[in-house]
Amino acid sequence: MIATKIAKKSEVPDNYMRLGEYIAAAEEKGEKLHQFWIRNCDAGTNIEDLDLALLEIEAVRRQKPDISDKTYHLVVSFRPGDQDKLTKDDLMAIEAEYAKALGYGDHQRVAGTHINTDNFHMHIAFNKVHPETLKVITPHRDFKILAKVSREMEKKYGLAIDPGMTDGKARDPNKLSPTARNYEAHTWQESFQRHVLKHRDEILKGLGKAKNWQEAHEVLSGYDISIKLRGNGMVLMSPDGQAMKASQLDRSCSKKKLKERFGVFEAKQAKPHKKDVKPKRRYKPRPLVRHSNTLTLWRRYLGKRKGLHQQPGLMVRALRNWKMFLLMEAHQDPLAIVLITAHYEALKIVLNKPQISRSSSHNVFHRSH
């Protein structure tokens, strides 16, 4: 699961009532409301209490007229299969943990889960103004808080572990190489190295059972990885040609260590009359940051890439990667702007580039034209 704060745009007014109605209505195409609840409002806790609850929340917010940003909008995206593991009580408990960790345990809020075919996610709209003290709470370094709670909830409820973007450095046993970091910064797509490190424990477990080079090749093939000699060492390679040092997976995978176990390197041998087994963890280009709106645009991007040879020159440039596509779509689709903002916030954290800001996304867009 990945928890993402949806930052308020400076030019857009803070409209809590509209956000609350959006959560309850699940307005996006193909989505429907799954569960819904309200916290810390005298009006009630259910969807039929929403109108009164929003008026109650607005009454509190109006007592801080000089504050322009009084809403904290959080989206928690789950992996496929997680929905079946969680009851409404579980979802409410997860929401409460985020609220407590952010300092919003006693604050008014509206929360709901949305379903579409591929993306189960939760929206939480916190009123940053405390209903009694009227103190406005803005969490400091909230990305670390969100990452910590996400990992705790995954463990508690047996959910799929998602390294995400907010804690990529903490989850990767080895830091991404400069090459992988540059790839992600320039494409906004997951690098091959991130794919490998995401499945690190599984891969090492399989390699630990291998008795020779051919068995090692078979284990790696299951993750769309090939291993080859390069220079004085070994590299793991993706189908599209990305590479990382084998030792970056683990010290036990260095050329020296593997040679001690399996002898002189042997290339993978084709088995006659036997088809290659399809990878169980295939490496595919995918968005670096997941957001409730990612799927719609990602499908559009993949659809346009299929007919790339038929596109005019400018469109070919825009379809080179996910980043260029979003920058092009920002002219006509506000969802693209939301995703651009999310990517810049995430890259600022993971790639340690504080100079990246939301405003710089507009500069990049104009330079691309």
Rank of each mutant, 00 (worst) to 15 (best):
F36Y: 01
G105M: 11
V364H: 15
V136G: 05
S247R: 00
K257D: 10
R367S: 15
A24Y: 11
I145D: 09
D69M: 01
K64C: 09
H123I: 04
K155C: 15
Q189R: 01
A26W: 08
K169N: 01
L288G: 00
I94V: 13
V136M: 01
G263R: 01
H140C: 11
V12E: 13
G168S: 14
K275F: 05
Q355F: 12
K353R: 08
Y344P: 00
H369Y: 10
I94P: 03
I38W: 09
K198Y: 03
G168K: 07
I124W: 00
D142E: 06
N321Y: 00
T117H: 06
V149C: 02
A160N: 15
Q108R: 06
I337K: 08
N116E: 13
A3C: 03
G164N: 07
Q248F: 08
A185F: 10
D14R: 04
K29N: 11
N321A: 02
T113P: 03
G231K: 05
H291R: 09
H291C: 00
E218M: 14
R317V: 15
E27G: 01
K284D: 15
F78G: 04
L55F: 14
A160M: 14
D84Y: 11
R230K: 08
Q214E: 03
A125N: 09
A7Y: 10
H217D: 05
D90R: 06
P312S: 03
V12H: 10
I67C: 11
L176M: 06
I203N: 15
A170K: 03
S292K: 05
M165S: 15
E215V: 00
S360N: 10
A26F: 04
R141G: 08
K348R: 06
W213R: 02
I124F: 00
A99I: 13
Q108F: 07
R230T: 12
L207M: 10
P285R: 12
I47G: 00
S238Q: 04
G263I: 04
Q269E: 12
I115G: 03
K5E: 11
L326N: 07
V149P: 05
M165E: 14
H121R: 06
S10A: 09
A185C: 08
M17P: 09
E11D: 13
A185S: 03
S254Y: 08
L220A: 02
T133Q: 03
K271M: 14
D142A: 00
T45S: 03
D276L: 10
G105T: 12
F78Y: 08
E27L: 06
Y223W: 03
M328K: 00
M17V: 13
F120N: 00
H121W: 02
K271S: 09
A318V: 10
L258R: 01
S226K: 12
H331P: 05
E21G: 02
L55T: 14
S254P: 04
T294F: 04
P163R: 02
T138C: 14
L19Q: 12
A53F: 11
E132Y: 14
L302I: 12
D250S: 08
A180L: 04
K353V: 07
M1V: 07
I161F: 08
L302N: 15
S254N: 09
R61Y: 05
E329K: 04
A210F: 13
K135E: 10
Y183G: 00
R281Y: 14
T87L: 00
D82E: 07
A346H: 07
I2S: 04
N363K: 02
D167E: 14
L220R: 07
N363A: 12
